[in-house]
Structures are given as C-alpha cells and as structure tokens.
C-alpha cells in the first residue's frame, strides 16, 4: 500500500510536468492578448505538478522521520506502541519484583524464627502480597487498552482449555478472596470440558477482570461457572454483593464508570476493567451481559447479587477468517 502511494505521488508530479512541456503542442490559446494566451494546459500541468511534488516531499519526509526513530513502515501504530509498552512493563515489573521478593523473604524469616512481629509489620507484608495481583491486572489492562485501539487487529484462533483458564484465575484470586473473608468456588459442566477455539489470552483477561470486580463487591461468596450449549460456551461470574441499581446497569460497561461516580464519592478503581471486558468480548465475537438484584423478594428472602454472563462461540475459526 505504501509503495502504491509513493509511486502515485511521483506519478502525479510527473504528469504535471508532462502537461507543462506538452502545452505548446497540444493546447490552443483561449483569449489572445490576455494572460490566458499562454496555454491553459500549462496552468493545469503546473497545478498538478505542485500538488504531486508536495505530496511526494511530505511522503519522503515522513519515511525519513520514521527511519530516524527506527520505526518500520509495515507495522501498525498499535504494534509500535505495544513494543514501547513491553519495555515499560518489564521496567515497571522490576521494582515490583524486588519489593515482592524482599517482602516474601521477610515473611519467611519471620515464620522460621517465630519472632513476634508488630501487627503493623505483618499487615504491611500482607498488604504488599495482596496488592500484587492488582498491579498485574493494571499492567495487563494498559496493554489491552493499547491493543483495542488497533481497529484492524483480529482475535487469535487457538485451541484453548477454558476450564484450565477458569481454574487458574480462581487459584490466583483465592488468596485475595480469603483475605477479604470471601469464599470463591468454581466448577464446570461437563466436568471434562475439552478444548474450544478462541483467543485464550483475551478470555483469560476478561475472566480476570470479572473475578477481580467480584472480589471488590461480594459480600461472602463468589462463584465462577463454566457451561456450554451446542454452539457457545458460557462463563458466569456470580457474587452476593449488594447489587447494582437498575438505573446504573446501562452504564456498567462505560469507560471510566464506577459506582462511586454516581454516588459522587472517591473512586476506588479506574472503571476500565468492565469496559475492557465488554469490548474484548465483543471483539472475540461474544457478548457480556450483566444481571443484578438489590432487594429482598416478596417472601422476605434476601437475595441480592450480581451476575456477569459471558458467552463466546465454541469455535471462532469461521468468524475470524470471515473478517
């Protein structure tokens, strides 16, 4: 494509020059004795030449600038940004790894020696450990946000063990849930779920954001359920939190929306997790829906909860290749 543009710009300039040169031969004077005595074709040729020349100069200047920055022509903006981001992610991960390493060493030493530490020290060590998954998710969220800007990107097509992804996310969030006094269960039906074709990385990220959200709002229980129909598989993340009001439901997936936003309170999160989860689900050919209940029912049974239902095709090969 770039080669075509480059040739076109040179071609237009060349055509303009040709028209100027040929004007005495192919043109005829319109108004003798006036400025238009000179061939109008020469004027037109001049205009075309100037346009083509400006186009070509701008084009070559842009290439020179990219070469200076070490940017290749055949890579998209998103790929270039991803490259920078990966360097950044590695650099931001380094101090975090050091902090976590020191914290785990200190905790092991305290456990081994049995020394009584002040409550604050133990709490600090716990807090550092508990914040690690938040950092992990934050770094990945920025990466996915960058990726979502690339409108031409298509989801990966790979055989994925969905049950393993759900299990991994559950294992990652169990310590956090336990620390917050929550019980986290997961299961799949059928138990031998098998492989599906989808974008495993995107799926992992969507489920992680949903479970992370549930750990913030659950009262006591969180459940992750994996089921399937003939053509789709469903991941349901349920929590027994106080629920979302009906008027807020349409905004749950808006970028930057948080419950605190409506309450005009201090934000506890950036409000991009659910936006990313929803956008990524749609990009993968699926749908993310939310259902919530706030009040007790007519029998007086308290049943407040929120359920996120993610449905994705069992096989995304035809959808992705059709794009």
């Amino acid at each position: 494509m770039l080669r075509i543009f480059r040739r076109a710009s040179v071609g237009v300039a060349g055509l303009g020059l040709l028209l100027i040169l040929l004007s005495p031969i192919i043109g005829e004077p319109l108004f003798e004795g006036t400025l238009w005595y000179i061939e109008p074709i020469a004027y037109i040729g001049g205009g075309v030449f100037i346009f083509g020349a400006i186009w070509a100069i701008a084009f070559y200047q842009n290439i020179a600038r990219k070469n200076q920055l070490g940017v290749s022509d055949d890579r998209t903006w998103s790929q270039v940004t991803q490259d920078y981001f990966d360097t950044f992610a590695h650099d931001i991960g380094r101090p975090l790894r050091r902090i976590l390493g020191k914290q785990r060493e200190a905790r092991a030493l305290l456990n081994e020696t049995g020394e009584l530490s002040s409550k604050m020290i133990s709490e600090l060590l716990e807090e550092i450990e508990n914040q690690a998954p938040n950092f992990r998710l934050m770094i990945e969220n920025v990466r996915v946000l960058v990726d979502l800007e690339d409108r031409t990107a298509v989801p990966a097509v790979e055989p994925v063990d969905v049950a393993a992804i759900v299990r991994n996310v559950s294992d990652r969030y169990r310590p956090i849930a336990r620390e917050r006094g929550l019980d986290l269960s997961w299961w799949c039906e059928p138990s031998d779920f098998g492989l599906v074709y989808c974008d495993g990385s995107a799926l992992d990220h969507v489920i992680t954001n949903l479970v992370d959200n549930a750990t913030k709002f659950a009262d006591k229980h969180i459940e992750i359920r994996l089921t399937r129909t003939e053509s789709t598989f469903l991941v349901t993340v349920w929590d027994d939190g106080k629920g979302i009001s009906e008027s807020h439901i349409p905004h749950v997936f808006d970028r930057g929306w948080t419950p605190e936003f409506s309450a005009r309170a201090e934000k506890q999160s950036s409000g991009i997790g659910l936006f990313i989860a929803s956008t990524l689900s749609e990009r993968c050919g699926g749908k993310l829906l939310v259902e919530s209940k706030q009040a007790s029912d007519s029998t007086g049974v308290i049943d407040h909860h929120t359920t996120f239902n993610l449905s994705l095709p069992l096989d995304n090969r035809s959808k992705v290749s059709g794009r």
Binding site: R167, S170, L184, S185, W186, E189, P190, S191
Partner: peptide, 12 residues
C-alpha cells in the same frame, strides 16, 4: 487437589 476452590457439582 487439582484446585482448592473446585466444587464437585451434583451431576458428578
């Protein structure tokens, strides 16, 4: 053993 949070559904 596989995963601490894994529930065994009634169907199984």
């Amino acid at each position: 053993y596989r995963s601490e949070g894994e529930l065994v559904p009634f169907s199984r």
